[in-house]
């Protein structure tokens, strides 16, 4: 039996004394394209960070492909929210993509020919081949997001976590990202994406996790996105999204 891509058991996480995630219990099978949806402050980012061991839960356990995260580092790729890094950092697009190789290299080893080739190839895949030596502050929001995606690609992972990759990008980039996500799934990868546009949910994803501190529902998109569940997640506000 193949282990699930991600298994979260009874996870509770609090910042100081405010619980942000409460008793989360989810199993994500391998090979799905899953959207994590929920209102602002629902704990979507926090959940990803907890799964990746960046935050310590108050209770609960996380397994990636049947083992603790620390043993699966090389099988996971991560695209943080674009706003979390300093885009004035003195470096170029290629160098940022190369950072995706650092995990495979481990301590002390410098990227070699093969890593450069992989990085250039990934830049090409996201349509950024011409921007390799561009200073990162001189890229548009959409281009920066593509760079982040290319960086995740060279991580050559089994499971990808992406935090709001569609925020602040142009329509062309959004399309390119979706194509890429579907390509990854076709290769058998599991892709977990924080998303907050309910209208494109069905078109882009096959699974969804509806979250608002508590987990509301998880499963195939059609089963999760019911008006009942949405009311639970968003209160009365979102009724009009469901047609």
């Amino acid at each position: 039996m193949t282990p699930p891509a991600v298994a979260v058991k009874d996870l509770t996480l609090a910042y100081r004394d405010t619980p942000v995630l409460w008793d989360i219990d989810i199993t994500i099978p391998q090979g799905v394209l899953l959207a994590i949806v929920g209102p602002n402050g629902a704990g979507k980012t926090t959940l990803i960070k907890a799964i990746l061991g960046l935050l310590k839960p108050a209770a609960g356990k996380v397994e990636i492909l049947g083992k603790p995260y620390q043993q699966q580092i090389k099988k996971v790729g991560y695209v943080p929210q674009r706003g979390t890094v300093d885009w004035d950092f003195p470096t170029d697009a290629l160098d940022v993509v190369l950072m995706g190789r650092y995990g495979h290299l481990g301590w002390f080893k410098r990227p070699g020919k093969k890593d450069y080739a992989l990085a250039l190839d990934a830049l090409d895949r996201v349509g950024m081949a011409d921007f390799a030596s561009r200073q990162i502050s001189q890229l548009s929001g959409g281009q920066q997001q593509r760079i982040f995606l290319a960086r995740a690609l060279v991580q050559d992972a089994q499971i990808y976590f992406m935090d709001e990759p569609f925020v602040g990008v142009d329509a062309a980039t959004e399309k390119a990202i979706v194509t890429l996500l579907k390509e990854l799934r076709k290769q058998g990868k599991t892709v977990i994406v924080v998303h907050h546009d309910l209208q494109t949910l069905k078109e882009y994803f096959d699974w969804a996790l509806l979250l608002n501190v508590h987990q509301i529902a998880i499963g195939p998109v059609e089963e999760v996105i019911t008006s009942d569940n949405l009311r639970k997640a968003y209160g009365g506000r979102s009724a009009f999204f469901v047609s």
Binding site: Q70, T84, F89, M99
Partner: peptide, 18 residues
């Protein structure tokens, strides 16, 4: 390389084991 990554993107550095 480790200093560069941890300075630019703390979260990625942490998730890849630095």
């Amino acid at each position: 390389k480790e200093l560069k990554l941890a300075t630019f993107d703390k979260a990625l550095a942490a998730t890849v084991g630095f």
